[in-house]
Design a binder for these strands. Structure first.
Length: 278
DNA sequence: CACGAGACCTGTTCGC
DNA sequence: TGCGAACAGGTCTCGT
């Protein structure tokens, strides 16, 4: 479930708690279990358990698609990839089949990293920057201006969709939001980044902010068997709407493959660029 | 530098 | 009903 709005929603729930779970803030780690070794990027499981016990949760933030948990001495980072999820549950609750890593907490609670597809990863490191250094700017950062985005686009010659999803270009955008952003900006996913006019780059800048903010407001999207209460899936304009009418012009939404990912667009609102025609 | 293919994984849905 | 194929929110590595 995890692109920027979903990761932010999960981080907020861990920070503030919810009806189902208490806040993770201030809790002390009493024990650690690594149930699937490859879910732990570093360090080795023995060192991980020995080092994390006794540390207290001081802060929970998001950077790109990473959840960043500041502990007393170290940083605990999670990347949810395709199917990861993080929740606080009762220590007495049965371990679910897809739990990959759990931390017992003081007071009878447990932090559980659940990840059916096993793509997600956790890191315990002294310096969070070691893991996060490759990330580009936060797309919602006030310091990212339309002019700066235009310049960044001009410096590259790449198809728009894979570039938006490149975490070193902007941090946090994935397949769903890339499709929704490009539709809102009326730009074809195969347009080359250095072919955009300034007006088009400005439209893209507005769409990035508008779509991501709407996703955050709706607590992200909940699809398939994973449901966390997010509602953005009910407001998709193109994603998973193949063949259904575009809300703007009525033309059927088209599905193509771009960089091996299903890509949804309105062929009328997002016309095929001349430069991409064979 | 940019792109496509394959790998890493499990589960669900689709088509015959 | 059964069974293989296609598909899924991500990223890394390799070859061209």
């Amino acid at each position: 479930m995890p692109e920027l709005p979903e990761v932010q929603t999960i981080a907020s729930i861990l920070r503030q708690g919810s009806r189902e779970q208490p806040s993770l803030l201030g809790k002390q780690v009493a024990g650690a279990r690594v149930l699937w070794e490859r879910s732990l990027a570093e360090p080795e499981p023995e060192e991980f358990a020995q080092r994390i016990v006794g540390q207290r949760v001081e802060e929970i933030t998001r950077r790109g698609k990473f959840i960043v948990i500041a502990l007393s001495k170290d940083y605990l980072l999670f990347h949810l990839r395709m199917s990861g999820d993080l929740m606080v549950e009762r220590e007495a609750a049965p371990l679910l089949p897809h739990h990959r890593l759990t931390l017992n907490l003081e007071g009878g609670w447990r932090l559980a990293f659940n990840d059916p597809r096993k793509f997600g990863r956790a890191w315990l490191v002294r310096d969070a920057q070691l893991v996060l250094s490759g990330l580009g700017p936060e797309p919602l950062d006030e310091r990212l201006t339309p002019i700066e985005l235009f310049d960044k686009l001009q410096k590259r010659r790449r198809r728009l969709k894979p570039l938006l999803m490149d975490q070193s270009f902007l941090a946090g955008i994935g397949n769903i939001y890339a499709d929704e952003i490009l539709h809102a900006a009326r730009l074809h996913p195969l347009r080359l980044s250095d072919s955009l006019t300034y007006a088009e780059a400005e439209r893209l800048w507005h769409s990035i902010r508008q779509v991501l903010n709407e996703g955050i407001q709706r607590n992200g999207a909940s699809i398939d068997w994973v449901y966390r209460g997010g509602g953005f899936q009910n407001y998709f304009r193109v994603y998973q709407r193949t063949g259904q009418p575009c809300y703007v012009c009525g033309a059927p939404v088209q599905r193509i493959i771009v960089a091996q990912r299903g890509t949804h667009l309105c062929p009328v609102c997002q016309p095929m660029p001349a430069e991409a025609v064979d």
